[in-house]
Design a protein around this nucleic acid. Sequence first.
DNA 1: GACCGGGTCGGAACATTATATCATCAGGTC
DNA 2: GACCTGATGATATAATGTTCCGACCCGGTC
Lengths: 155, 155
Amino acid sequence: MAEVATRETALKEAEAVCTRRGAVLTPLRRQVLELVLRAEAPVGAYALLDQLKAMRPGAAPPTVYRALDFLLEQGLIHKVERLNAYIGCNESGHGHSHDHHHPHQFLICRTCGATMEIADPAVTHAIEAAARRVGFVLAEATVEIEGTCARCAEA
Amino acid sequence: MAEVATRETALKEAEAVCTRRGAVLTPLRRQVLELVLRAEAPVGAYALLDQLKAMRPGAAPPTVYRALDFLLEQGLIHKVERLNAYIGCNESGHGHSHDHHHPHQFLICRTCGATMEIADPAVTHAIEAAARRVGFVLAEATVEIEGTCARCAEA
DNA sequence: GACCGGGTCGGAACATTATATCATCAGGTC
DNA sequence: GACCTGATGATATAATGTTCCGACCCGGTC
């Protein structure tokens, strides 16, 4: 499967990114990251916890949330606010080498749940301009677009 | 205070909007709407519940959530996903007469908590274009911009 | 070696946000 | 009156997220 290869690559790169920054991708954090990457759609913290318990019987909510916080901090995953769920950061294409927080947008399919990350410069620019116009100093923008993905729309 | 007048107007208009649609702005719903409008910043459901209890001793979570669902449905309030909080819909300026769901964006100040609703056509258009480009059928977009508002930035 | 300090993790309890379910009541319709 | 519908009352429970304390490891430093 191609996805497996992609995931392996992503994990290796995550490792590299952390090392470069003096952060440590511990086995626990790596496991959680792998679970997030393995999922087809954004995953909830407690779904991750359930899976994690198979490997680590003692796992509790803080176990997962600490790992997620770390991964969010490092920009390796994102949180989808509308779903209270987490998704692997997809850098493909755009030139951010895992910036801690890079501008991005999500397309969330209501039918199949698949969530796609894009980084549209026009959207980013329009948001920056809108903020500037009212003297607002932008720190981070959440853009979550809900609807029907191409595949589900034609079916 | 000007805000009181504004609020009165908003409540009257809400009443009118509901009637026009055959929906009923019951006393409970009206009270919840008023509490939301009265708040300076987005309010959580349980904060509303606490206030509501003063007027309705029997109020429970479903009491508030049902009212909020109705108000969301009617487009009289919005939910701020990043804060799990609710805010009155501000139509001022743009021409939507309480559409059920009109495109809008939030500017959330991390310092003072104030949250401003805007409706920037460029942002809306860029999002529509981005979705169309990948064959995504847009239903609704959440745009929540966090940062520092003009007032807090200069202070 | 002994000691300290930071970072990580285990584990219990708790806080916050939201929903499910069933009962009740008022108003309209047949 | 019997029946339906929409709104609310009331209890319980689910889902999501945090606080707190203590243990442990590891890299310095004396």
